[in-house]
């Protein structure tokens, strides 16, 4: 049996598809018994799907650095 803390970690890993098969099995079993965790897991999945839906973009550190350099030249 795993603790709720452990379950939360595995749940986060599954959001990035990084949990191992045995971890997923443990998580499933835990979610089956633990109401609070299954609720939290649902919320977590929802957040992942929101992030995917929003098609977020971000600038890499390198691009930001370039921007800063450019900025310094002017300032």
């Amino acid at each position: 049996m795993i603790s709720c803390d452990k379950a939360a970690t595995i749940c986060n890993k599954t959001q990035y598809r990084e949990a191992t098969f045995s971890e997923v099995l443990k998580l499933r079993l835990h979610l089956f018994i633990c109401k609070a965790c299954s609720k939290a897991s649902k919320k977590n999945k929802q957040l992942t799907s929101l992030c995917e839906k929003a098609k977020l973009y971000s600038l890499s550190d390198k691009e930001k650095l370039e921007m800063k350099e450019q900025f310094k030249g002017q300032a």
Binding site: L56, Y57, S58, L59, E63, K64, M67, Q70, F71, Q74, A75
Partner: peptide, 30 residues
């Protein structure tokens, strides 16, 4: 930078152009 970049990308739908616009914005702001 990230916030402005998302704002720009959703309007010009081109990453490179959006990046330029953001840095132009910073310069203009300065």
């Amino acid at each position: 930078a990230d916030y402005l970049f998302n704002f720009a990308v959703s309007r010009v739908s081109d990453g490179e152009v959006a990046k330029d616009l953001v840095s132009e914005t910073f310069l203009a702001g300065l």
